[in-house]
Design a protein around this nucleic acid. Structure first.
Lengths: 338, 338
DNA sequence: TTGTAGGCGTTATCAG
DNA sequence: CTGATAACGCCTACAA
């Protein structure tokens, strides 16, 4: 049983290929009767037009490409889920590629997707990406582009983001309100807007509540791993015993810190409070359960697809599309570590 | 800058489309000189043949489809990584779909992939899948099929698996050797071969060491979640205080159990030892760190792709392909929970 | 209301 | 060694 073609249907019903094609697409110039017959038969034999042949005519591949920095990553997996569900509803297939947080690979993956003639690209920028030429190229080629989470302030395209600065501010303020005065920050790498904004939110909260900000209390997690959190926790204990709370750029470093404190029998949150960011599944499972900021990945993914789809529809009608930025709500998740 | 075509190159170099095509594909009947010229130019303008047009002729889409039961799942993410890396090396794109552990959705996703004319399908069967007609259909349509992890003993196709029974046996034997006598098992659902085999491995280890097997010490995790582990840990403490070790079908239930024991101030492993299965990232981060069985997802993914590719090459040559089963090595990871 | 013809970009066959 | 031609399956302007 090979996949059927229009020709097969035409032969079976003794019609021309054209009529069958038109009937299936509800052209007005086909009789209701013929339409009914054709559609019934197509359904019976479970016909779907060949996507590749269709592309050649329509230039629509019904595929989108997604580039994420890491495949094995709770948050991005959730985003993917949102994208894939939304895509499926509109009959789109999703090609997923990973940049492995590498600028070079990211460029290559963008290129692969363009060569594949995807109808749109959704992506989250790698931490190491420091210029946006390859990203701007996508728009220049007239391919709809939507960035999510790791976006670029410089690129003119739609984005789905959270308000990192506010979210971080709220998280740190929560620490302050529970009586912490010497709050350290495990920040992310230097380029991504996220880690900059979370850092700024941290500083703002300190400022507002007239608490000291000290450079030595800010530690940079280049790879945002639990190991880094573990190592910095040791540093903090050894060199800065006055610190009574940690706000981490993400859950992983926070969990690494918790692990170290547990090993040293430092009680959390009594001796030191720990706050994460992202609300990974794991954060509810460590002991003590980690307080964090919920970042709704699935919603972000769905919104990202919807932005792409909206843009595509407008472009098809030849209308201008103005990039939109959607800000998704976050929420504080207070558990046992603060 | 639209994507270039053979025609563009032909025009630019004042050759025929045919010659350009042949030159790029290293046909023997094109002069070395022309080849050099064409290839140099193609490289310069970064030409890639249009995949859709090529499909129409060759019937090769250079795409494979992958169906996994869950997207946001450490092990499957690792498998995907292996598949995607291997696929990329051979110039294949990967379409990922999720069955969400649903039999109905799995059937639908198989259908979508076949309609998309992928060159092959790699999949892991959903826990709820109880018949294999849709799977056997794939092979009947002459599409190479490789199963991984969750495979079917009934289907005639290549598979990449681990020896679940042996791995479970080793894990339980480790508990026994460390002096445990009353070992409970948090088993998986009834259908998947995995959970059956892990259960059998558990029983075998008990038998070999003449330890008691009791039905009441076996708890079924239908969804393999931490919540189930948490709940069963409570059951065990309340109703079976004699139990001194738990072997879980996967890390998640094991971690849920650890969480409960931590809350109750039950010391692990002194009062009760806990053993997981799969070696998720998280298992090294909980306190105490979870002992488990390492299941090399990335390797399995790569092997799965390689099996597909091998089969495809043979088919293209018109040779018969006999399904292969590749067993990937697991290893015991002893941490602090046993 | 139905059908004919041409073309999307590539590749394979065959003729020059 | 090179090139013209047909075909893959679908879509659409145009003719009947």
């Amino acid at each position: 049983m090979k996949n059927l073609t229009l020709k097969d249907i035409a032969t079976a019903l003794d019609l021309s290929i054209t009529t069958v094609s038109k009937a299936l697409k509800d052209y007005p110039d086909v009789s209701t009767n013929t339409k009914k017959k054709v559609k019934a038969y197509a359904k019976e034999v479970n016909f779907t037009p060949n996507a590749y042949a269709a592309y050649l005519r329509t230039q629509e591949s019904k595929m989108i490409g997604v580039i994420i920095p890491q495949l094995n990553h709770y948050f991005f997996s959730n985003v993917l889920k949102g994208i894939m569900n939304a895509a499926e509803e509109e009959g789109y297939m999703v090609i997923i590629l990973s940049s492995e947080e590498s600028y070079e690979l990211e460029k290559k993956q963008v290129d692969r997707l363009m060569k594949q003639n995807v109808d749109g690209i959704l992506m989250s920028i790698a931490d190491s990406t420091h210029d946006t030429e390859h990203i701007d190229n996508i728009s220049k080629q007239n391919i709809p582009l939507v960035l999510f989470d790791k976006y670029s302030k410089l690129s003119e395209c739609s984005s789905v983001i959270i308000n990192d600065q506010n979210a971080a501010f709220t998280a740190v303020e929560h620490l302050i309100k529970s009586g912490r005065k010497n709050i350290a920050h495990l920040r992310g790498p230097l380029f991504p807007q996220n880690s900059i904004d979370r850092f700024l939110g941290y500083r703002k909260a300190l400022e507002k509540h007239q608490l000291p900000y000290k450079k030595e209390w800010v530690f940079t997690c280049h790879d945002i791993t639990s190991d880094e959190g573990y190592t910095y926790a040791k540093d903090i204990l050894d060199k800065h015993p006055e610190i009574d709370a940690i706000f981490a750029v993400a859950d992983m470093p926070a969990i690494g810190a918790i692990k170290y404190f547990n090993e040293q029998n430092i009680s959390i949150p009594e001796q030191i409070a720990v706050m994460g960011f992202s609300n990974w599944k794991i954060s509810g499972l460590v002991t003590p359960a980690l307080s964090t900021v919920n970042q709704p990945g699935e919603t972000m993914g769905r919104k990202a697809f919807e932005l792409f789809y909206e843009e595509l529809q407008l472009r098809k009608k030849g209308e201008k599309f103005a990039p939109k930025i959607i800000e998704v709500e976050t929420s504080l998740v207070v558990r046992d570590s603060t």
